[in-house]
Design a protein around this nucleic acid. Structure first.
Lengths: 258, 258
DNA sequence: TCTCTGATATCATCTATAAGACTCCGATCA
DNA sequence: TGATCGGAGTCTTATAGATGATATCAGAGA
């Protein structure tokens, strides 16, 4: 059916985008809608025009409009109600999500990072470590205590407990000092399938405060973690201790135009 | 061009989906790919088949495949490299993002929540509040201290500083006890455009510990916030104090099959 | 041996079309 | 007056195809 093809070609050529000045069409449309929400033109709770209407107004295909709206829905700015319409959302605190950006930024800076091993050895698992690693209490585990420096200053204290399994490749790899930052950069951990993280506030013990050069009475973040291999069993568990100033746990909700 | 239309109709009818057993096709495909990553069939760093190949293999349209892959890319499981292919990602700690779920769940339970106002009044802004609200030091502000109970037990201490502006509707609304949970459910705050949140670890003062019925020396989360109106100026600022057990800041990274 | 260049594979974006599914509202009927 | 039904509007999912942009790699030329 050549006629059809020719027709399509012609149509496409007719409105071909040439080095679109501000990126893809869907992104530009999303920006425009966002702007209208930001300016208050579309207020929270209000219904925005139907996708078909927007499509017609801007001369874009419905799928492109759909993508733009979908992006804003993902961002939590809009809410689609099937069969009814698309509505503007107010800021929703339930969408607040914090990331460890600040901390991880430092760890990415490989040159500035150095790691000192304070303790290392094979010990018998105590109740807590045994539970986390899903092994019997008293089984041998590898226990590590490490201090992470950035540009000569300590900023992270790490305690790690690892399954002692000579067949598993994690043992060798984990014992290398480089593996810790490797864990954060996401490279070279093909044996880790998933991980669980839990952040808690905590009080530094005098010893911990000494390592981190914090005040004796300072509060800190404790980042507990457990990671799992492809067998779905835990291979390592432990925590990081970071002073408040080392970690920024912040987020923004609602419409920020930037 | 009727021939074209008829042709398309026929094609569409030919493979019409009838009450797809496990939801939309793109979701099913995404699940299947995820499964293959989870099982180790596609290992981190490996290249998955091209979208065109997948499209052919499963008999789906390229757009459907694209949607499925895009979903996994958004989840951080896959990584698209333009002109090269799509690759499997290992767990990436930089994607770790924590939410205030646990806390907000409690606040959604409107019946169980009660709020006690400990202090309320108009005071002169001190340096910190003045900076946060972007007003001059010494200007009058509304200062509130509130204690939030869930099922009779205190679990959140809140200090709020609000701009004193008789023209702004936030004053009346904020002073109502219901407004606090309203803030979290995202309903009835059409005057809030955006907000900034910052979580810190902190030490409870004896007074604060008393309010929250915590141990004297316990660590807690301090959730600082500032929210802004549609004029982009801050209308309120303050913090929440929550004992560790009241807040769960946890997250999972990597492939969890659930 | 090194560098540049072009072909190719692949992703990225967009267009066009169509029918199913859901919700709301109003009209109809008892 | 109240309940029910149907249609309009809307989102949802899907199909097929075209074209632009870019990374990779092999091969030509210096």
């Amino acid at each position: 059916m050549p006629a059809k093809t020719e027709n399509k070609n012609a149509a496409a050529s007719g409105r071909r985008r040439e080095a679109s000045p501000e990126g893809p069409a869907y992104a530009r449309l999303a920006g425009r809608i966002k702007q209208m929400i930001s300016s208050g033109e579309y207020q929270p709770g209000a219904k925005i025009p139907s996708e078909a209407a927007i499509s017609k107004e801007y001369g874009l295909s419905p799928m492109t409009v759909r993508q733009a709206v979908g992006q804003l829905v993902d961002q939590g700015l809009l809410r689609r109600v099937h069969g009814s319409g698309t509505y503007v959302c107010g800021p929703d605190w339930t969408r607040a999500s914090f990331s460890l950006e600040g901390l991880l930024e430092l760890l990415h800076d490989k040159n500035g990072i150095s790691i000192k091993i304070l303790r290392a050895g094979i010990v018998k698992a105590k109740a807590r470590a045994a539970a986390a690693l899903e092994i019997r209490e008293g089984s041998p585990i590898i226990s590590l205590m490490r201090l992470v420096y950035h540009e000569g200053r300590p900023f992270l204290l790490n305690k790690a407990s690892l399954r002692f399994d000579p067949r598993s490749p994690i043992v060798e790899s984990e014992l290398e000092v480089s593996s810790l930052s490797g864990l954060f950069t996401g490279k070279g951990n093909s044996f880790i399938k998933k991980a669980l993280l839990l952040v808690e506030p905590c009080l530094l013990s005098p010893e911990e405060a000494g390592f981190l050069e914090g005040d004796r009475e300072s509060a800190a973040f404790k980042i507990n973690y457990t990671f799992y291999g492809y067998s779905d069993s835990p291979v390592g568990s432990g925590w990081f201790l970071a002073l408040r100033k080392a970690v920024t746990l912040s987020t923004r909700i609602g419409v920020w135009d930037d």
